[in-house]
């Protein structure tokens, strides 16, 4: 079971995380909620190993991970398929990738350069990329941000079917998302 123990992180004088401890249930979806600036994304970055914690211990996070970042972090000059193949290698055929993209409403996009896509389309491409990458732990930082209600419903359903058996840690502001998507919710509070 992935465990974060007494994680502390501060930037200059600002304490962002203070002794954060939690056992993330394996194969379950954990939502991290809280006000803007309370350290949700910082915590995610620490758990992903992108920034070091000032103190504390991470146990069980050394497995293959995957992520939908707060920004899409797609290579703008590559096509959507090329962005996916960048992380999956040759594990999926062209038609398999097309099928996955079709499931989130990106039927006509596989060979389009990312720079030609709208914000919502990029978000969906980033989600498909994260879900097709080989991983046991999946980090989702506001994954449904910028999606309209209908698309969000479709994508949410797609994500739900794809993350079965994976440990998912996701950040959101939306309590409705928590209720419909998460198995447990962890509230972070703003520290001074």
């Amino acid at each position: 079971m992935p465990r974060a123990e007494n994680i502390c992180k501060s930037f200059s004088d600002k304490i962002v995380l203070n002794n954060f401890t939690h056992d993330f249930k394996e194969g379950k979806i954990t939502a991290l909620v809280g006000q803007s600036g309370c350290g949700k994304t910082t915590l995610l970055s620490v758990l992903m190993g992108l920034i070091p914690a000032d103190s504390g211990t991470l146990i069980g996070f050394d497995k293959p991970i995957s992520a939908v970042f707060q920004e899409d972090r797609l290579c703008e000059n590559l096509t959507v398929s090329a962005n996916i193949r960048l992380v999956t290698g040759k594990r999926f055929t062209k038609s398999e990738i097309e099928k996955e993209l079709c499931a989130v409403g990106l039927k006509d996009c596989p060979e389009k350069p990312v720079r030609e896509l709208s914000g919502g389309m990029k978000r969906r491409a980033a989600i498909v990329r994260a879900l097709l990458a080989e991983s046991e732990i999946l980090f989702l930082d506001e994954p449904f941000k910028g999606l309209d209600a209908d698309t969000k419903e479709t994508v949410l359903e797609y994500v739900r079917t794809k993350v079965k058996g994976k440990t998912v840690i996701f950040v959101t502001h939306d309590m409705e998302e928590c209720d419909t998507f998460a198995d447990e919710t962890v509230a972070l509070t703003q520290l001074s």
């Binding site: 190993g49 992520a67 290579c75 990458a133 980090f139």
Partner: peptide
């Protein structure tokens, strides 16, 4: 630099990282 972080998270192999990222 955020794409560099992305490559790190997804553990993209060096050659693919060089060409793709």
């Amino acid at each position: 630099p955020k794409l560099k972080e992305m490559a790190k998270v997804f553990k993209i192999p060096a050659l693919r990282r060089f060409s793709g990222v």
